[in-house]
Design a protein around this nucleic acid. Structure first.
Lengths: 238, 238
DNA sequence: TGATTCAATTTTGCATACAATCGCGGGCCG
DNA sequence: CGGCCCGCGATTGTATGCAAAATTGAATCA
């Protein structure tokens, strides 16, 4: 019907990446994940299978499989016979998640120090100064995205695949709150200073120090996120 | 009519778990998880949907949903149009996982120190001495199970739900290798000493020290597991 | 007015049917 | 003898139908 993105040229052997055709349940899982991460589906929203099927243009079978995937990832809560809802984190959940991500990134920094090449560091440095530029221009979203990329890059540099997966999974669950942590402008300067410390430690290949900085950094981010979301949730103190 | 207890009356409070009926896809996921964890399905084994359906006595729809769940948990690898196989971890994967679990348990110990009650510690102490008893008797499986329970208990005592979930998930993936770590009998004594150190740190509510002990403990376990699985995989050097 | 019952509707759970794809083995041609 | 093509069985992917359970809402009774 509306979506004719059927990549249906019969002879097109290998497109950019060879995918004879992507299963609908994977496509649906990605789409659903995006919808949740981008806020198109808000925490607590009910997910009615049939209506979502209509929106996505598929049948219930692959959608239900996608829902199982997202449920295992923690983005959806599934109650037997009563449907699915977008997971909604309590303040405690957010706090817990930040703490776990904190030690994960600390481990990442530690492992990364034993493997980074100079050009890896140079690459991060470029990202850092781009981020700093966005800060001076007050471009919040760009700043946020580069911030995320720097953290992701450090985790990648650890070379620890399990760490990467776990980090990405938990990061997705609190994506919006990480963003909230950057709402307060005065937080930006502190964050940039901390990032510069991180670069120093990386340069020196000082794993222990980098680990400590990262964990402290995440701890500060957690605090910032909590005060930001507290006001968002209607708390008086700000 | 077998109208057992059709819930619909406010007969006081429901039992701890009220379940009019458990969905088959959940049941299947649990069953499959057990089969993998217990080795009934070995790493690398192909999972053919129809034959498993016959074994479990259900249709493909709920089984496929269960497979999606286990895939997201990392216990199954799913290749589009080519079926599912039980995940098989490389030595590097195992190493990576142990490192992540190490920092997770370290965090758990740290958080636990701020919350434990004396009777919690007493409970762990009981488990510890039961474990020590199994050691003197050479009862490997019982020793292993109590060992696991002690670690789980510490993670629970952290009160961090995200930490608990993540820990359990990763723990499942390398369950067999943790067991392998205990194959060498000389490792037992070292492990017991480390556990006693942990009890001391808990008594003193010394979070930093407990964290360090736990991480070192896991690091030793990783080393032991690696040499054990190396021989199992046919390596010459032990 | 307010609580309760019960039927109609909606929604979820599962099985089955059908389509698409893969893997393999035989036949064909060089 | 070796490589390629094709078709057939096995297996995965998706759609649909039906039954079970929950939700809704209106009618009933205290």
């Amino acid at each position: 019907m509306a979506d004719d993105n059927w990549q249906g040229l019969e002879l097109a052997e290998d497109a950019p990446q060879r995918r004879p055709r992507r299963p609908l349940h994977e496509e649906a899982a990605d789409r659903l994940r995006d919808m949740i991460l981008e806020g198109e589906l808000a925490p607590g929203d009910r997910i009615v299978e049939q209506s979502l099927c209509d929106r996505l243009g598929l049948s219930r079978t692959p959608l239900r499989e996608a829902i199982k995937t997202l449920t295992a990832e923690g983005l959806i809560i599934l109650q037997p016979n009563r449907g699915a809802t977008v997971a909604s984190l309590s303040l405690e959940d957010i706090e817990d998640t930040f703490r776990v991500i904190g030690v994960l990134e600390a481990l990442a920094g530690e492992q990364a120090c034993g493997r980074v090449q100079d050009d890896d560091i140079a690459e991060i440095r470029v990202l850092h100064y781009q981020m700093a530029l966005h800060r001076t221009r007050g471009e919040r979203l760009d700043y946020f995205k580069l911030n995320q990329r720097i953290h992701e890059r450090i985790v990648e540099l650890s070379g620890n695949k399990v760490l990467m997966e776990t980090h990405q999974r938990l990061g997705g669950c609190i994506r919006r709150y990480r963003f909230a942590a950057n709402l307060a402008t005065e937080r930006w300067d502190q964050a940039i200073r901390e990032h510069e410390e991180m670069l120093d430690a990386l340069d020196a290949r000082d794993g222990k120090r980098l680990a400590e900085i990262l964990r402290r950094h995440l701890d500060n981010k957690r605090t910032a996120a909590e005060s930001a979301t507290a006001t968002e949730r209607g708390e008086p103190g700000g």
